[in-house]
């Protein structure tokens, strides 16, 4: 047992060592995540998405593999939004490392929420029109893009649509007015 624990601490120490070096590199050379690095950020993206749409009595973002959709869609974004997203992701990694001395993946649920709250505040002006202007000239802010893609990825996934919401593949008939059922979920498609 002791031996196992010792090895674990050693590994943990090594991991901290690596991430410390990384923190140093970020601050000194302005390191940003590159598009080609995205597949390696899969786990991070999965944790971020799960913080936005957690598993409750229905599947969460991780169950629906939302991170794979996010990666595909960032590849298919315009350059400004791509840049914002990658820079935002780097900035989130650095912020987390600076504040908690470990990665986002290792954060407690409370820490994860605090980190995302910080980035949500950064992304949102209280005045709606400023958000629009911001989007137009600067591209979509990191947090907003992350949240948009998480929601879209979840709600258009099989698990999200059929279990998180209500999905009617072939309704057969339109019924215009029905009493709401108990715990009625929203239709996944319009």
């Amino acid at each position: 047992m002791n031996r196992k624990r010792a090895i674990q601490s050693l590994l943990a120490f090594a991991a901290i060592g690596v991430s410390s070096v990384s923190v140093y590199e970020w601050t000194s050379s302005g390191h940003t995540v590159k598009l080609t690095d995205l597949p390696q950020k899969k786990q991070l993206l999965a944790e971020l998405a799960e913080t936005i749409i957690p598993r409750t009595d229905t599947p969460g973002a991780k169950d629906a593999h939302v991170e794979e959709f996010i990666i595909k869609m960032i590849r298919e974004s315009d350059q400004k939004s791509q840049h914002n997203f990658l820079a935002g992701l780097s900035s989130l990694e650095k912020y987390t490392a600076d504040k908690y001395e470990h990665s986002f993946i290792e954060c407690t649920p409370q820490q994860k929420i605090a980190v995302l709250k910080h980035f949500e505040d950064k992304a949102t002006y209280s005045i709606a029109i400023l958000n629009k202007i911001n989007n137009k000239f600067l591209g979509t802010a990191f947090f907003n893009k992350l949240k948009d893609l998480t929601v879209e990825g979840y709600c258009t996934s099989q698990l999200g649509a059929t279990q998180g919401m209500a999905y009617n593949y072939i309704p057969v008939k339109f019924e215009a007015c029905l009493p709401l059922q108990q715990n009625q979920k929203a239709w996944a498609t319009k």
Binding site: I53, T124, D148, C155, L180, Q184, A186, W187
Partner: peptide, 27 residues
Amino acid sequence: GERSEWMDTRDAGGFGADYKKSITHPG
């Protein structure tokens, strides 16, 4: 006319379990 669904409600602030509930139920 329609009830708001995730495409309409996703811009609401916040995230987490309450947010998930709001976007997955008719608005």
